[in-house]
Amino acid sequence: MQMRVIGALIIREMHTRFGRHKFGYLWLFFEPLLLGAMIAIIHQFRGSQDSIRANFEFFAIGYILFFKFRGMVNRAGSTISANRGLLYHRQVTLPDLFYARHIIESIACTGVMVLFTIAGVAMGGQYPDSVVKMLSAMMLMFLFAQGLALVIGAATSEWDGLERLVHAMSYLILPFSGLFFMVEWLPGWMQEIVLWIPTVHIFELLRDGQFGDLYRPVYDLNYVFGWILVTHLIGLTGLRLARNRLGLE
């Protein structure tokens, strides 16, 4: 039943965001495709290296990973308020509302990542060293962003102004997320600081899958799993308390 509910919520979300016209659904893929391509092209032209792998693949695919994180986290604050009326149906739970939105974001970004990978190979790049590691990075970012989204969704149900702060923080974290650098490029004291940020480990795993021995990745997946577990426990607990405060059951 929960799978059917999530499927129905996905269809409703698609209609709400993109209308009922089939071409409107293309924006789901076109937005991350356009933004990722523009950032990659800018870095490709200003880069000092001639290799496609050094610029286009690095920034295009990396930005898609961050785009998924930002999209899931930024939409968390409005998830409950935009779907409050659906909660009068007992089959619809608060986590279902988030899962439906997150699946949409994940499918779109994964599809665009595949397109960028194929484009990089077509423009002279090499095949990824490990597709499994790249997909694992996408999955870990999905789970981490989902955990944060659940926490933010529960918190914004209590404090309305928190959503604006979340939007600002999602941009402020961009330079430190791991999108624009590899840990090995940084001085030792800075490496110790950035490795406290879980997204850095996920980006390092992504680049390990992309480039293999070309760079020396530094990541600890157990640290990322710890963040995923803690954020999900806090978020799901917060949503359960929020549902009781909404008084719909």
Rank of each mutant, 00 (worst) to 15 (best):
Asp50Glu: 10
Val230Asn: 00
Asp213Ala: 13
Ile10Tyr: 07
Arg90Phe: 12
Gly125Phe: 08
Trp185Leu: 06
Asp96Val: 10
Arg75Cys: 11
Leu150Ala: 10
Leu248Gly: 00
Phe66Gly: 01
Met38Ser: 06
Pro95Asn: 08
Leu140Gln: 10
Pro128Leu: 02
Ile80Arg: 06
Gly62Trp: 03
Phe98Val: 07
Ala242Asp: 07
Asn55Glu: 13
Ala37Asp: 02
Met14Ala: 15
Met14Arg: 08
Leu9Gln: 10
Asn244Gln: 11
Phe23Trp: 10
His102Pro: 02
Leu87Gly: 12
Leu94Asp: 13
Ser78Phe: 02
Ile61His: 01
Asp160Trp: 14
Val194Gln: 00
Ile202Val: 14
Ile197Glu: 01
Ala60Thr: 10
Ile42Cys: 09
Ser48Ile: 09
Ile202Thr: 06
Ile80Gln: 00
Arg207Trp: 03
Gly235Leu: 07
Met72Lys: 03
Leu9Pro: 11
Ala37Met: 14
Leu162Tyr: 10
Val183Asn: 05
Ile193Lys: 06
Asp96Ile: 14
Thr117Val: 05
Arg101His: 09
Gly120Ile: 05
Arg70Trp: 13
Leu179Tyr: 07
Ala149Arg: 04
Phe225Thr: 02
Tyr127Pro: 05
Val92Ile: 15
Leu28Glu: 09
Ile193Gln: 06
Trp159Asn: 11
Val73Ser: 06
Ser177Gly: 01
Phe45Gln: 12
Ala37Phe: 11
Lys22Asp: 10
Leu165Val: 13
Phe176Arg: 07
Glu57His: 00
Thr110Gly: 10
Glu192Arg: 04
Leu34Lys: 08
Ala119Val: 14
Met134Ile: 12
His102Gly: 14
Met141Gly: 05
Tyr127Cys: 00
Ala8Ser: 15
Ala100Glu: 03
Gly153Ile: 01
Thr110Glu: 10
Leu26Thr: 07
Ala155Gly: 13
Val166Lys: 03
Pro95Leu: 04
Arg17Ala: 15
Met182Gly: 06
Leu148Glu: 05
Tyr88Asn: 12
Trp185Ile: 07
Arg245Ile: 01
Pro187Gly: 14
Leu174Met: 13
Asp160Gln: 15
Ser106Pro: 00
Val200Tyr: 03
Gly120Glu: 11
Gly36Trp: 14
Val151Arg: 00
Arg207Tyr: 02
Ala137Ser: 06
Tyr219Gly: 09
Trp189Gln: 08
Gly161Tyr: 13
Arg53Asp: 14
Lys68Glu: 12
Arg245Ala: 04
Asn55Phe: 05
